[in-house]
C-alpha cells in the first residue's frame, strides 16, 4: 500500500520542501461591528522539509493562521512568505487538508483526487498520478465510489490523496485526524510520518492532540488563548521512526500540557 511511484516524486520534491516565513502577522474579524482580534503579532520561520505542529486552545486562531498561509485570506498586518516570495493567494504548491474532508459529493473518489490536476489543466497527461495517490492511501478498490459510500476515515484518506497528488511543497494539515476513531488515527499518523519522510515536503500540522504533535513533529509551537500569540517553540529532536512509549516524548508531552495549563490532570 505504501508503494508510491516515489521515484518520480523523489527527484522533484525530496530535494526541497518550501521554506515558510511568518513575520509579525496579526489578524482580526469584524463580527457585527465589533472587532475580534484573532492573531497577535505571530512570527516564526519553518525550514524546508521541517514538520511543525501548531498547538493551542480551541478557537485561538490556528485555522485562521493556516488560511493565511494557504493564501485564502490576507492578514490585516504582517507578511507571509513562501521561499522568500510573499503569499498573495492560493497556489497548488501549498495544499490544505481541512478538518472536514469536504469531498465533492458529486464526484467519485477518483475524480475527487483528480481535482487539483484538472483545475490546473494537466490531468490529461498526468492521470497516472491520480492512480498512484489513490493507491498510496490504500483506496484502489474504491476509485468509483461516491463520498457518501465512504467511512469517515476513508473520506479523510481521499482528502489526503487529493492533496498529495499535487506534489505539494508545503502540506497544511488542519486537524485532519480530529474526527477519526483512535485506531484509524494511529494508523494514519504513522502513514503521514512515513509519507513526509519519503517525500520531503514541509508540513504544518494543527492538532489538539499533544501526543500526536510530539509523535510527528520536529517542532511544536504552542499558542496562547485568543488572540493567539506564540507561547513556546519547542524542538522535538528524537529520531524517526519514533515510538509512542519513548520516555523523552512523554516528558515533552507533560511539559507542553503544563504550558496549556493542563498539568494538574497529569
Amino acid at each position: 500500500m505504501v508503494a508510491l511511484a516515489v521515484t518520480e516524486r523523489a527527484s522533484t520534491a525530496l530535494a526541497r520542501g518550501a521554506a515558510l516565513d511568518v513575520e509579525g502577522v496579526s489578524h482580526a474579524f469584524d463580527i457585527d461591528g465589533a472587532v475580534l482580534p484573532v492573531l497577535d503579532d505571530v512570527s516564526f520561520s519553518v525550514k524546508p522539509g521541517e514538520f511543525v505542529a501548531l498547538l493551542g486552545p480551541s478557537g485561538c486562531g490556528k485555522s485562521t493562521l493556516l488560511r493565511l498561509v494557504a493564501g485564502l485570506e490576507a492578514p490585516r498586518s504582517g507578511t507571509l512568505r513562501e521561499d522568500g516570495d510573499p503569499i498573495t493567494g492560493p497556489f497548488p504548491s501549498r495544499v490544505v487538508v481541512f478538518q472536514d474532508p469536504t469531498l465533492f459529493p458529486w464526484r467519485t473518489v477518483w475524480n475527487n483526487v483528480a481535482l487539483g490536476l484538472e483545475a490546473q489543466g494537466i490531468l490529461k497527461t498526468q492521470r497516472h498520478r491520480v492512480d498512484a495517490a489513490i493507491e498510496l492511501v490504500g483506496l484502489s478498490g474504491f476509485r468509483n465510489a461516491y463520498p457518501h459510500q465512504l467511512s469517515g476515515g476513508m473520506a479523510q484518506r481521499v482528502a489526503l490523496a487529493r492533496a498529495l497528488v499535487n506534489d505539494p511543497q508545503l502540506l497544511i494539515l488542519d486537524e485532519p485526524l480530529g474526527k477519526l476513531d483512535s485506531l484509524t488515527r494511529i494508523t494514519m499518523q504513522a502513514e503521514i510520518a512515513s509519507l513526509w519522510q519519503r517525500s520531503g515536503f514541509t508540513t504544518l500540522l494543527v492538532t489538539h492532540d499533544v501526543e500526536e504533535a510530539v509523535f510527528l513533529a520536529n517542532r511544536v509551537i504552542v499558542f496562547s488563548d485568543r488572540p493567539a500569540r506564540i507561547k513556546a517553540d519547542i524542538a522535538v529532536d528524537s529520531p524517526y521512526p519514533r515510538h509512542r512509549g519513548d520516555p523523552k516524548l512523554s516528558e515533552l508531552r507533560r511539559n507542553i500540557l503544563g504550558l496549556l495549563g493542563l498539568d494538574a490532570t497529569w
Partner: peptide, 22 residues
Amino acid sequence: SNAYYDVARTLGAKPSFLVLKV
C-alpha cells in the same frame, strides 16, 4: 458551501472552474 470553493482554490482552480465545476 464556501468550503468547496476553498478546497478548489487551494488546488489551483480559476474562477471559470469554480463556476462550472463547483
